[in-house]
């Protein structure tokens, strides 16, 4: 389970986003197509490149759909991994958590 879906459009990411989670995450986001999505990445301890790819492809798709795709909370580990692999998510962060 990549995320616990409280309600459609809200996605809480699990702690370990590894190879196995990439497909799960992809499926969950597939289900949320056409809706505004708020992602909670505050619990993430590990994130692999494949999950990042899924998230980035999704962000692009949402942008095309003119829907919001926003990270509402992110953990330190999540933020730093993005930095490490050279992915800028600043534009996807909720305003209140932008640095």
């Amino acid at each position: 389970m990549a995320g616990k879906k409280a309600e459609k459009g809200n996605l809480k990411l699990v702690a370990v986003l590894d190879l196995n989670e990439a497909s799960v995450l992809h499926g969950q986001l597939m289900n949320a197509r056409g809706h505004d999505v708020t992602i909670d990445a505050s619990e993430v301890q590990r994130v692999g490149v494949q999950c990042v790819q899924v998230l980035m492809a999704a962000a692009k798709a949402w942008e095309e759909d003119k829907k919001t795709f926003v990270f509402e909370k992110v953990s330190d580990a999540f933020r730093k991994t993005m930095q490490l692999i050279g992915i800028n998510i600043d534009h996807l962060l909720a305003k209140e958590i932008r640095q």
Binding site: S23, L25, Q53, V54, A57
Partner: peptide, 10 residues
């Protein structure tokens, strides 16, 4: 990176 709908998550 392909389109979200067409991508292989792995």
């Amino acid at each position: 990176l392909p389109h979200f709908d067409k991508m292989d998550p792995e």
